[in-house]
Design a protein around this nucleic acid. Structure first.
Lengths: 354, 354
DNA sequence: CTGTTAGCGCCTTCAA
DNA sequence: TTGAAGGCGCTAACAG
């Protein structure tokens, strides 16, 4: 599987005659420039109050000494780590991925560094990471919580460290939270299918112990009820955020017996599994079955047929999360909850039932 | 777009009567336990040499004082930041994404934290981040280089900080590098199309100033030459790693005039643009045109037709990168270059020409 | 087994 | 405008 070029491993430790160029310290620079450490500090941090010539001399000395300000030391002194913890479940989901991209870019531009954690929605990993962030004295946190470490998250807030929860609410804790408009989105999607004439709709949704799972379920049921329909438990499938969930649910609903005329996969990760099943059985979409998904992904538009979706606005979510964190870091007080609207994007995968 | 629940922003700064629970220090614990600071340090870092009772007393005191070891202070003292810089161009590409996921998980388990940077393949952002990593005294680096900051990267190596370059080689610098077997992959892909009977193949590939772009081009040309064909410049399109590249190249080759019977998109990001164009013109794949892509993505398998690809082994690349970094951190000497084999994954998008 | 001492590199009064 | 001094929180000799 893995081959080393030339077949033989070439060892090349740094040649001994090259002095490992250690980064210089203020002290080194001070010695070189013939001034005191504090003068160097002032000159280099641009606090003014320095004569032009000494400043120039110090700059040269800094260059010569290969000076690099030690952020750890500075952080220790100033009690500001300039570190932000970012915790997501994975980097595949568009919301999670965009959150990471946007957060890093924007926070980086604001002078913060992002420490990343990919939890895999695992509570223990989350707990460990949160502890680590306490130890690094992170100045802020953006998290997609697993929901099972509320008290630990609350501790940050109590210590004055802003925490922004995204996509999922952390129950029992008054964290600033940015959420999808899940109820509205699921309701709009369901209503769209109803308006097309569907009366038997399969609904695949996330775990009932998550914010989005619960809320989308509520929205779906509300749309049905409004249309005078009674929700049929055999048509509603809760499940983990994984392709298998979609596959199994489709199997249960489509393999035999009376089939629904439409499937609404409101659990993004499950979409792929649902599509696999549908393809394996060669079910024509939208002729024999309408398919509606939740959360847009670039390839949905290129699929044949292009997938109609409820778009949850992940870019806006990410931007808002960073925006709010930056504001909180600036002393702006907490706002409890934000909702980002969903939008129906009609493409080709839904049609009136046969 | 954004609504606040209840319409009115609720302000909830932490109630003033809750003392901000500051993290305690060794000193606090020492005072509480009635021992010296160093005793506390030893007890809490598990260096042994502590009587059981004092240890227990210290643990209780630590609890009471809400003690959290300050990683910054520890790092300053021990000259070990336990920080690793991770630099990728984006998080969409499977290789980049997996690198980030795998690196965080594995390095996290090994007691390191990952500082993330998404450069967008921009040299200035890369330079800024590298400087930041110097300042944070990062202990290691995993980077997908832009290729335009070689000297700065080399400085780390000189200072004894292991750097693992991934996917792209950093010219002129002897960095440990993990690469796709690009030539072999492109050659195998091209040969596959040739074996199907294609004699006019369009080739879309990455920028010529990148490792993968150049190498895949070489592999493609070699396969053609071996088959006794002469490369036709109008059939070869270099371009940035973006969907537009694929769209434009297809436009140039498929819009009018004599069409190639197959397209090999060896620039992953361009695949989507190519597919869009093909769909817009309603060209049937593989009946009217064979389509071969490079780098697998989950949705390729679910597309209709499922896309045949040259899989570049991104998971293995990521694992190897982390593995090697960890070894280097452990003092194992540099190996210059590693190659991870490519594999042809045959699905439905290629067929013999009409 | 425990305490004392001496910094790691930096910032920040306070004097000069 | 500059320097001296103290300390952020922690670890690691070195004594006792």
């Amino acid at each position: 599987m893995v081959t080393k070029k030339g077949g033989v491993a070439r060892k090349t430790g740094a040649p001994a005659h090259i002095a490992a160029t250690r980064a210089g310290t203020l002290k080194d620079v001070a010695l070189l420039a013939g001034v005191s450490i504090s003068t160097v500090s002032r000159a280099l941090t641009g606090k003014g109050l320095i004569s032009e010539q000494t400043e120039k001399r110090i700059r040269q000395a800094a260059e010569a000494a290969n000076y690099r300000p030690n952020t750890l030391a500075r952080g220790l002194k100033t009690q500001r780590s300039r570190l932000i913890g970012l915790m997501v479940h994975n980097l595949v989901g568009t919301s999670h991925r965009l959150l990471a991209e946007v957060a890093q870019q924007r926070l980086g531009a604001a002078g913060f560094q992002v420490i990343l954690c990919v939890t895999g929605d695992d509570a223990e990993q989350e707990a460990r990471f949160l502890t680590t962030m306490e130890n690094y004295r992170a100045e802020g946190l953006i998290v997609i919580p697993t929901g099972r470490n509320g008290p630990q998250l609350a501790k940050f807030a109590q210590a004055g460290v802003p925490v922004i929860a995204v996509i999922r609410r952390q129950e029992e804790q008054a964290l600033e939270t940015i959420l999808h408009a899940n109820e509205e989105g699921a309701q709009a999607g369901t209503r769209y299918l109803l308006d097309l004439g569907h009366r038997d709709i399969g609904f695949i949704v996330g775990r009932a112990d998550t914010t989005s799972g619960r809320e989308r379920y509520v929205g779906h049921v509300r749309a049905l009820t409004e249309a005078g329909l009674r929700p049929d438990p055999s048509r509603i499938h809760f499940g983990a955020y994984r392709p298998e969930t979609g596959f199994r649910a489709c199997e249960a609903m489509l393999a035999n017996g009376r089939r629904p005329t439409a499937i609404f996969v409101a659990n993004h990760e499950a979409s792929m599994g649902a599509m696999r099943f549908i393809r394996e059985r060669a079910i024509d979409v939208p002729e024999d079955l309408s398919l509606l998904c939740y959360e847009d992904t670039p390839w949905f538009a290129w699929n044949k047929p292009a997938i109609t979706v409820v778009d949850s606005g992940p870019q806006r979510i990410a931007e808002l999360a960073v925006e709010r964190l930056l504001m909180r870091l600036d002393g702006v007080p907490t706002q409890l909850e934000h909702r980002v609207d969903a939008a129906l994007v009609i493409r080709e995968s839904c049609a009136a039932p046969a």
